[in-house]
């Protein structure tokens, strides 16, 4: 287990707030930008950064992250190069925990054991694989653990109590709760019944930190979710802010950092 994830959630908990988990698509619009982005988001107050690994067929993603994934692939991003970029950022002193957020196939093509070794060397802390539920992911999770990575499994409103317990047993670092049925993408509202859902999940996962994501985009939403969960994940809103900045001919890094700092402030109430 990497200590960084546990420490980040522990610190936020000690401060009486939720951790801000910022998702970015690695390599969008280029790996050079990602290299500047990571320290900027750390400085802006992200407690954890999820690095989306681009994939040709992202079935769990809405249009914003689909486009980002296409841009990243078009600019030549691969899993290997993303890991190199993470290693370079660590070399320059990046301390924020990093979670690789991938679809199964790029990792399978790399080889699960080879990926785990390389990711750990590169300073990745956790791994979350969207289309690898516990049924298919037990062996991979064990490989991640033995390389010192935290496997993070997803839960959803449709998860049964038995599934909730199983995901918690296989996860370390945190468990990721998908707040609503559907794909990634910013929404204006929070799902009804989120507090009940969080309570139901908590009953099954014990003390493992719980991060909630999907559809969360504004500081108000972050503030509301912070009251329920140990972590709040924001993805599409950051990715879209960067897309808009690039389209307007501006540097996407400060634009993303400004948004992240307002979201980080929102976790503090």
């Amino acid at each position: 287990m990497s200590g960084r994830l546990g420490a980040a959630f522990g610190r936020a908990r000690a401060e009486g707030r939720a951790a801000l988990v910022a998702f970015v698509e690695a390599g969008d619009p280029s790996l050079a930008v990602t290299g500047r982005l990571l320290p900027a988001l750390q400085a802006a107050g992200a407690d954890v950064i999820e690095l989306g690994i681009p994939f040709s067929d992202p079935i769990a993603d809405g249009p914003v992250i689909q486009r980002a994934s296409q841009r990243a692939l078009g600019a030549g991003a691969t899993l290997a190069k993303v890991l190199d970029a993470a290693a370079a950022a660590r070399g320059e002193g990046l301390s924020v925990p990093l979670v690789a957020f991938s679809y199964a196939n790029p990792i399978l093509a790399f080889g699960v054991a080879a990926f785990a070794r390389r990711a750990a060397e590169a300073g990745i802390d956790g791994v979350l694989v969207t289309d690898l539920p516990p049924e298919e992911g037990e062996a991979a999770a064990a490989t991640f653990v033995s390389s010192g990575l935290d496997p993070v499994f997803l839960l959803a409103p449709s998860s049964t109590p038995a599934r909730i317990r199983r995901a918690a047993r296989l996860s370390s670092g945190f468990v990721y709760l998908v707040s609503r049925p559907g794909v990634t993408g910013a929404r204006n509202d929070l799902p009804e019944g989120l507090p009940d859902l969080v309570a139901r999940v908590r009953a099954g996962i014990g003390r493992t930190p719980l991060a909630v994501g999907f559809g969360i985009s504004s500081p108000e939403q972050v503030r509301a979710v912070s009251r329920e969960a140990d972590g709040v994940v924001v993805g599409s809103a950051i990715v879209r802010t960067m897309e808009e900045a690039v389209a307007a001919g501006r540097d996407p890094v400060p634009a993303a950092a400004r948004l992240v700092s307002s979201l980080a402030a929102a976790t503090r109430g």
């Binding site: 959803a156 449709s158 998860s159 559907g182």
Partner: peptide, 11 residues
């Protein structure tokens, strides 16, 4: 097998 996001496992 069944390689899908968690949301689809119950359905």
């Amino acid at each position: 097998g069944r390689f899908v996001p968690e949301t689809l496992m119950a359905p």
